[in-house]
């Protein structure tokens, strides 16, 4: 079936079998391998993408259900001019080690900051409960999200 999406601002389409998940379509048909397959059952969060403003597990969503919707993946986070503040803070504060959780983690973090620019540590932990990381112990990830949040809300306030 033909699935048409807006991915990272671009109109994309692919003819996929109905049993194709959004993750598989992104990775195999659209060549966007940023979102990862980690557990394939919606537990680990490496496949997280944002669909119409809400983060979700792309391994659990059929591509068919994403038809006509707007998707943001990790590849759409930076602009050609600059990194997203989250990408900067994750890099500078060492929040990525093996990096495999990174794309999903960053999308969850973006989803959080879009809705709550200055989250508390508790709110960050709650927002990341669907993203597993086995390297960092999460501490640096939490610091990086707070750091990016400060930068984003500072920018919004015109500082």
């Amino acid at each position: 079936m033909l699935v048409k999406l807006k991915v990272n601002g671009e109109l994309r389409q692919a003819d996929v079998p109905p049993e194709t998940t959004l993750l598989k379509m992104l990775r195999e048909d659209l060549g966007l391998t940023g979102a990862k397959l980690g557990c394939d059952v919606g537990d680990c969060g490496t496949c997280t993408v944002i669909v119409d403003g809400d983060s979700l597990n792309s391994c659990l969503m059929l591509a068919a259900k994403a038809n006509g919707r707007e998707i943001t993946t990790i590849e759409g986070l930076a602009t050609s001019a600059d990194l997203h503040p989250l990408q900067k803070s994750f890099e500078e504060l060492g929040a990525l080690q093996c990096g495999f959780c990174g794309p999903g983690m960053l999308m969850s973090a973006k989803n959080l900051l879009d809705k709550n620019p200055e989250p508390s540590v508790h709110e960050i932990k709650d927002a990341l409960s669907g993203n597993l990381c086995r390297c960092t112990g999460y501490t640096k990830i939490i610091e990086a999200i707070q750091d990016a949040g400060r930068e984003l809300s500072g920018a919004a306030a015109g500082n």
């Binding site: 919606g42 969060g45 997280t48 669909v51 809400d54 983060s55 979700l56 597990n57 659990l60 969503m61 969850s108 989803n111 959080l112 709650d126 927002a127 409960s129 669907g130 993203n131």
Partner: peptide, 9 residues
């Protein structure tokens, strides 16, 4: 229920 991503599905 679950986590943010599963609650959005």
């Amino acid at each position: 229920v679950g986590a943010v991503q599963t609650r959005n599905l």
